[in-house]
């Protein structure tokens, strides 16, 4: 059993040229009340000391239930939120202390696709303006070249040339998400953060968008951070997956292995809870039904965040916060009892 912890292994990896994004001990707290006395202040610890890395060209999936901090992680990486602590290493450069002006070139390299295709497009702008805005900001193309570029992008995401002069309300949900994707790709990014890009779409349309994201990745060599709560879709699209629970990473592993051999009790429960669209499999499936509710991220209890619902809980779990440990190659788990549980 390897007992080197994550911080060591990430240090080794920082030499690695393949790593595009490395998040070290990232934290984002939101203050809930603003008492003058420090001891009275309450913080919502949306993201609390998480570390992971994404290699060039891969898709890293971030899963978890609502409120676990997966979207906050995505937004903090882009500095849409100021991180409370930790480092965001992009190609070896720490983004967290950069000023807005210094950040600008990185904004071109990192783009985001949002969850809600209805709220994330400005209803008063035409498709042409929406896609062209980033091109103008970063001074990439002008005049006829810019028009050509927009046509090219629109084509790439499966829309037609004549669509560029229309407004968002003239499109269906799936088409709007395509516009959102074209906008993200307009500035030729390297890393795209996809924050639940398909969860607002109809089932039959989801597959269209997922296939398109995969095609674009192959074609342009994009790296994705794919945030979602739909575990079967995440398994489908991701190379590696991180499982979050109330602000903490519980398990990080490559996707095939995670679904075959989940080690953390939360991951095990989460995977067994997915309804499988196959009646025969379902009938023979033994469910792990968790007792109790998710604990609040506001002033969370010490120890493991999952301890309140964990059936293996022991005293140590409520006293010491478990660190992510590498149990097998590229399989990290944050649990004190993981060896005992999976004997």
């Amino acid at each position: 059993m390897a007992d080197n912890n994550l911080s060591q292994s990430t240090q080794n990896a920082s030499v690695d040229k393949d790593v595009l994004l490395q998040v070290k001990n990232l934290a984002k707290y939101f203050s809930v009340n603003s008492s003058l006395r420090k001891s009275h202040r309450k913080y919502l610890k949306a993201v609390d000391d998480i570390s992971f890395q994404i290699k060039k060209g891969e898709t890293f999936g971030l899963v978890g239930e609502s409120g676990c901090g997966k979207s906050t992680t995505g937004r903090t990486i882009l500095r849409l939120y100021e991180p409370t602590a930790g480092q965001i290493m992009y190609n070896g450069v720490d983004l967290s202390p950069l000023s807005d002006r210094q950040m600008l070139p990185y904004r071109k390299k990192m783009q985001m696709i949002f969850q809600d295709p209805y709220a994330s497009l400005n209803g008063r702008m035409t498709v042409n303006d929406i896609i062209g805005e980033g091109i103008e900001t970063h001074d990439l193309y002008k005049g006829a070249e810019k028009t050509e570029r927009i046509y090219d992008l629109v084509n790439h995401v499966g829309l037609k040339k004549e669509h560029v002069n229309r407004y968002p309300h003239e499109f269906s949900g799936g088409q709007r998400q395509r516009i959102g994707i074209a906008r993200a790709l307009a500035v030729e990014p390297e890393l795209v953060i996809c924050d639940e890009p398909i969860s607002a779409l109809d089932v039959s349309v989801q597959a269209q968008v997922v296939n398109m994201l995969e095609d674009l990745q192959n074609e342009m060599g994009l790296t994705y951070l794919f945030i979602a709560h739909d575990l079967s879709m995440v398994k489908h699209i991701s190379d590696r997956i991180g499982v979050m629970y109330v602000g903490k990473l519980m398990e990080v592993c490559n996707s095939e292995l995670l679904y075959e051999n989940p080690l953390h009790p939360y991951t095990q429960a989460l995977l067994s809870a997915i309804p499988i669209p196959d009646p025969i499999v379902t009938r023979n499936n033994q469910r792990i039904i968790l007792e109790g509710d998710v604990q609040s991220p506001i002033n969370p209890l010490p120890g493991c965040r999952f301890a309140t619902r964990c059936m293996y809980k022991q005293d140590i779990c409520t006293q010491v916060t478990p660190e992510l440990r590498e149990l097998e190659s590229d399989h990290f788990v944050a649990c004190h009892l993981v060896e005992e549980i999976n004997k």
């Binding site: 269906s172 949900g173 799936g174 088409q175 109809d202 089932v203 039959s204 349309v205 989801q206 597959a207 269209q208 997922v210 296939n211 995969e214 079967s232 879709m233 398994k235 489908h236 699209i237 991701s238 996707s255 095939e256 679904y259 997915i274 499988i276 669209p277 196959d278 499999v281």
Partner: peptide, 24 residues
């Protein structure tokens, strides 16, 4: 088409989804 467009947990993850073209 509906069955084919959802990823299955048992299927290999690199298998491509078969979407239904168009919209409702």
């Amino acid at each position: 088409g509906l069955h084919k467009s959802v990823p299955s947990m048992s299927r290999k993850s690199n298998e491509r989804l078969v979407p239904i073209a168009g919209s409702p």
